[in-house]
């Protein structure tokens, strides 16, 4: 849309007379007072945080704490009621299209097309992000080889086991080489071994410099993150490295940290 252009950005810059950049050195996401209301219900209540370039950032919270809502705002899927945020250097209010070009997203619910084949799903999303036929073809071959899915290339996605579907969805989400990938409970419903395999993929991608923003409620997964934030009733109650949180709350593992904090929750699921 024309509204998305730099013209609006100039207006913003002009209105926000402080010429200092919003994102600090080394940051890729910064949110200040980000809020989302549905009627009277405040799903996300003035959260402020920042994510560093290249880190694996865990976004924890009980069901209904507002994790998914917060993530959907950052992805440009839903509009914040209040607050300001920048993602990959673009303003969340005015430059949603540019943000979308720089991020990948994998939703809680498996959302590739079940009635398309494996290669067709990859081709569709590659094409939507503006890759050429040639690029798509080369990248598809190397991706399928890396995943060990060459045999399944012509299979319909619906006939893949859930663990494979999740790996494929993650690969499709980062196929266009975004700067950040948002993963919303990416490993729901699979066994621990498959989850471990999935996290190995995340680590591989992070080594290439990708920033990973991941929500989960498996506390062992929280230990894999560089830093985690814990949301309770729409607010961020704690944010630090897992080791720092454990010593702060005098806990043996993240599970105990989580329980100490989540006990304060007043909101029902």
């Amino acid at each position: 849309m024309i509204w998305d252009g730099s013209f609006r950005k100039k207006i913003i810059k002009y209105v926000n007379s402080d010429t200092e950049p919003f994102l600090r050195e080394g940051e890729i996401i910064r949110a200040e007072g980000l809020t989302k209301c549905f009627g009277d219900f405040v799903a996300v209540d003035h959260i402020s945080f920042s994510v560093k370039k290249g880190e694996i950032f865990g976004f924890l919270g009980a069901n209904g704490a507002g994790k998914t809502t917060a993530m959907k705002m950052l992805c440009g899927l839903s509009k914040p009621t209040e607050g300001r945020a920048e993602v990959a250097g673009y303003d969340l209010k005015w430059e949603v299209r540019k943000i979308k070009r720089s991020i990948g997203y994998m939703s809680q619910k498996f959302s590739l097309y079940e009635d398309l084949k494996v290669w067709e799903n990859i081709r569709l999303f590659g094409g939507i992000y503006g890759l050429s036929d040639k690029e798509i073809q080369i990248k598809t071959d190397s991706l399928l080889e890396r995943l060990g899915l060459e045999q399944q290339r012509n299979m319909f996605v619906r006939s893949l086991p859930l663990g494979w579907k999740q790996k494929l969805a993650f690969s499709v989400a980062i196929f266009h080489e975004p700067q950040i990938v948002f993963l919303d409970e990416p490993t729901g419903g699979v066994d621990p071994a498959t989850r471990r395999g999935f996290w190995e993929m995340i680590y591989d991608a992070a080594e290439w410099g990708l920033t990973v923003f991941v929500t989960t409620h498996y506390m062992d997964e929280a230990e894999y993150c560089d830093r985690v934030s814990i949301m309770v009733d729409g607010r961020i109650e704690a944010l630090d490295a897992p080791s720092a949180l454990k010593s702060k709350y005098n806990a043996a593992n993240m599970d105990q940290v989580f329980h100490t904090l989540a006990r304060k929750a007043k909101r029902d699921e």
Partner: peptide
């Protein structure tokens, strides 16, 4: 219903 629209909505594809 299938949730696939969300994967499209998160892409920069114009309306």
């Amino acid at each position: 219903e299938n949730g696939t629209i969300e994967q499209i909505n998160v892409t920069p594809v114009p309306k």
